[in-house]
Each structure stands twice: as C-alpha cells, then as structure tokens.
Design a protein around this nucleic acid. Structure first.
Lengths: 231, 231
DNA sequence: AGAAGGACCAGTGGTCCGTA
DNA sequence: AGAAGGACCAGTGGTCCGTA
C-alpha cells in the first residue's frame, strides 16, 4: 500500500541513502522511512516515543490500540525525516540527508493527494477544496505518506514557488548556495529575494502570481512573503 | 455616520414602514432601525436586554461600558430587524415588514463592505479576502450596519443567487408566492428548485456557477444547495 | 406559528517550541 | 548549532436554538 508514495523520482533521488544506516545508536530514533524500507529492505527502525510531556511511561507501545480508523496499518514506527541539505538540480543527497529535488517532489505529491480529495468530494457532492488544506494533509497521512506534514510544506513553500516561477534562477541559487556550503536555512531565506524581484515585475501582487501558476495555485501564499513586500 | 448604510434604494424601498410604530407594547422591544430613525425622525426605540441566560438583572444598562473599540457610538439601542415578507419586484413592504428588494440590497451592501476590507488589506499588505468572511461581517457591524449579520445572509444566499443568475425566474417566483400568500420560509425553500435547474444546464457545478458571476463569486456556496444536487 | 440573530462549536490556517 | 513536526491556538465557517 505504499506504492503511490513511491514513484520514480523519489526512489531515484534517494536510492543511495540507506547506506550507513547501521551507525544509528540504538536508543536514539534515527533513519528509516517507508520508501527506504522498500528500496533497501529496510530494518533497524525504531518506534518513536509518544512525544512530550508524559513521556516516561510509554516508551514501548508498538501497536498503540486503534486510534487511526482506516489505514493505520503497515509501519507503526515513524521517524523524523532526514534533514534537507542544499543540492544542485539532479543531485542525490548522500548520507542521512534529503536533497531539494526530493523536497520539491513532496509538493507534487501533495498536489496528487489534493486531486484525490477533490475527486472524492465531487463524487459525494461535498465541498471541494481548491487548496492544500488540513484535510489533504490528513488524507496524505492516512494514505501512508507520513513524511508529509503541514509545518514542513508551509516552511518551504516560497522555495517551491521560486522553483515553479523561475527554474533557472532557482537552480542558480541552489548551485551558488551549495558551492558556498550554506545550510538549508540560509538557502531558504535567500529564496525570498528573487521572489520579490518577480513580484516587483508584476505589480507586487503575490497572490495573483501564485494563482496564475497551475502548480502554485493550490498553495496558500506564505504570510512572510506577503509581508516582506512593500505596498 | 450612518450615511454609508443609507443609500437610495434602502430608503425608497422602506420609506413607508414607520407607519403604525406606536402600536408597539411598551415592554416588548419592537421596531426601530437606524434608517428609520433617519428616514422618519424615529423615536420609540428601546434598548434590547443583554440576551439570554442571565437576563433578569440587566434590563436597563444603556451605555454598556466600552467593549467596542472603535465606532460603538451612535445608536446604542438595537432591535431585531422586521421580518421579511414576499414582495414583488419594486414593491414596498408595508407595516413592520421588510421586502425582498431590501433583502437583496443587503447583499450588495456586504459587497461594498468586502471591497472596503480588501482595500484596507491591500494598503497594509495583509491577506486580502476574496469572499464575505467573518471579518467582513465584523467590519460591517463596526461601520454601523448592525442589521447585517452572518446567519441572515447565509440563510437567504441561494435566493440572492437565483436573483443574480436569472432575474426573470426569480421575479416570477416572487410574484407567484406573493399571490398565493406564502410566507418567506416557503418562498425561500422554493428558490432551490430553479437553482437546481440552472445547475443541471451547466454540468451541476454550483461552485463554478457562483464563481462565474461577479456578484455571486464573493459568497460561499450554501451547503444545502450543494447537497441538494445529485452527482 | 414563523422568523431574526447571538453565540456556540468542530475543524482551519498558521506556526511555536519541545524535541532529537 | 540547525532542523523536523506534534500539537496548540486564535479566529473561521457554519448553523442551532433560546428568543421575541
């Protein structure tokens, strides 16, 4: 049931990652995503603690009852995703890292999930979302794409916007920041500037710019992008 | 400061209403809206009790402190609006009633308020609503249009939709229901049917039909209208 | 009874901050 | 330190139901 989360790009882009999975300290969580399990016959996964405040009692439940109503099945054990690093276009991230092609690919997966949610809504005659909403994130999770979550997608959405609106500039920026050895945070911040330039060329209306692009129109315009703009 | 809530139509449409205002029982609340005050040199207004649960102690506060931060001023005393009755196009409701031209006029006023909210948002570089949201209702209230509220506008929105999409049919329905002496509720229900007919002609996509019409696009499609439709 | 609308509520957009 | 994401929160869309 993981097939729809495993298309060509994500496997290619990440096929070397399972390397050195064994280095992981037993107690610390660590690597292991759905696609890794498939791609590498993955092992060495550990359940995550239930998180936070009352953590001490519950280190060891594996199944956690049935609080997911649908497709909770499959891997009960979730890890954090590997952090992103700045990669050039086409470059595969090595080690326990993810590359930017993979990041952008997640946005396309979200789009697929949105389309599925829309189709279901239309069939049922229910309200049909035009954007990636909480409902879509919930749907993605149920469909097994546990590596997709709202804070992450919102965090990098303006980077994806630049990638959609001017791939040349986006690629150049990636190369430059990779060369300089900058971290993802610095690259992310740097994505605002060319976006502002684009906005300036088109009347400063970021909203209109997003909505005019078929891949971008489904994403809420990031608050900071709007505020970063004058007028 | 009530000028922007008092344009030509609402005064014309309602200029005869202040008749027989004196019939009102002293203890019961009753008539009296902002425009009546102006149009008829209104008097006879009574404050409303604070509403509900703890009503017994507080019949008489007039000023109520300052919990409105901006333009609370003007008439402190609010009444319910007179109920709607089914009127023909152009007909003025008599007695303590409001007509359907006035109802539809409220939708246009909301549109004006939305445009104002949008302009303010643009100036400030903030999020710019495309629909009549809670924010717009709040703005309308602050601007003194206390007779506009969300439940009412949502309640009749499909009636307004019919009026926008096929005024001929809408007018015919009003005349028919007036002649038969039907109440507003019956007329309101009856508005669904021709709307469904219109939807049927255009691929059943109510959402697309709303969005294609400039006056309707700013209104959320009523849930029941969507659900009433097959497919 | 028929109707107006205050006020509530489930689920939203947004993102902080405890986590690793 | 840099980063991923669970979980919280203010304000939303939606409308019920106490009111007149």
């Amino acid at each position: 049931d993981t097939t729809n989360t495993l298309d060509a790009l994500s496997q290619e882009g990440l096929s070397e990652e399972p390397v050195q999975q064994e280095k992981e300290a037993a107690g610390s969580g660590g690597g292991g995503r759905a696609w890794e399990v498939v791609a590498a016959g993955g092992k060495k996964q550990r359940r995550r603690k239930k998180h936070g405040k009352t953590a001490s009692l519950e280190d060891d439940e594996e199944t956690e009852g049935g609080d997911e109503d649908d497709n909770g099945g499959g891997g009960g054990e979730r890890q954090r995703e590997h952090p992103f690093i700045v990669t050039e276009p086409g470059e595969v991230a090595r080690g326990k890292k993810n590359g930017l092609d993979y990041l952008f690919h997640l946005y396309e997966q979200c789009r697929d999930f949105l389309i599925q949610v829309q189709n279901i809504a239309k069939e049922r005659g229910e309200k049909c979302p035009t954007k990636v909403t909480n409902q879509v994130f919930r749907y993605a999770k149920k469909a097994g794409a546990s590596y997709i979550n709202k804070p992450k997608m919102r965090h990098y959405v303006h980077c994806y916007a630049l990638h959609c609106l001017d791939e040349e500039v986006s690629n150049a920026l990636r190369r430059a920041f990779k060369e300089r050895g900058e971290n993802v945070g610095a690259w992310r911040q740097a994505c605002y500037k060319p976006l502002v330039t684009i906005a300036a060329r088109q009347g400063w209306d970021i909203d209109a710019i997003f909505n005019a692009h078929p891949l971008l129109a489904i994403w809420y315009v990031p608050t900071k992008a709007s505020s970063a703009l004058p007028c």
